[in-house]
């Protein structure tokens, strides 16, 4: 199986983009991150990750949707690409398979 290079934070951001579905841009992604994971990150980090994801082809972007509070500036809206959703599914799949392989007693022993 081809490995998808996705870091942990990248994965979370990519999931957020998928969840926000057409409404994902810098502000909303970082807000959602804060809300759902409780992680407070700076804009720079979020942007950086989004752009890296785009470079890897997991998301695509387009400019649009200027609003007043942005001073008339457009947003860059991110969408998960086919490659991106496959990568998410593959990760999900892999995790699932791995969970299946886990001996039931093991979990109990480690206190989970």
């Amino acid at each position: 199986m081809r490995r998808t290079y996705l870091g942990e934070f990248e994965e979370v951001v990519l999931l957020m983009v998928a969840i926000l579905d057409g409404e994902a841009y810098g502000v909303t992604v970082s807000q959602a991150l804060e809300e759902h994971t409780g992680r407070v990150v700076t804009f720079g980090t979020v942007h950086n990750t989004l752009i890296r994801l785009e470079e890897k082809g997991f998301v695509s972007s387009q400019l649009g949707g200027a609003t007043n509070e942005r001073g008339g500036r457009r947003k860059r809206i991110f969408q998960v690409t086919a490659l991106g959703s496959r990568a998410l599914q593959e990760i999900q799949q892999l995790r699932h398979e791995l969970w299946q392989m886990m001996p039931p007693t093991k979990l109990r022993l480690t206190g989970l």
Binding site: Y25, F43, H47, K75
Partner: peptide, 10 residues
């Protein structure tokens, strides 16, 4: 443009 926009919105 986008960075400035995001920052202003926030």
């Amino acid at each position: 443009e986008e960075v400035q926009g995001d920052l202003h919105e926030r």
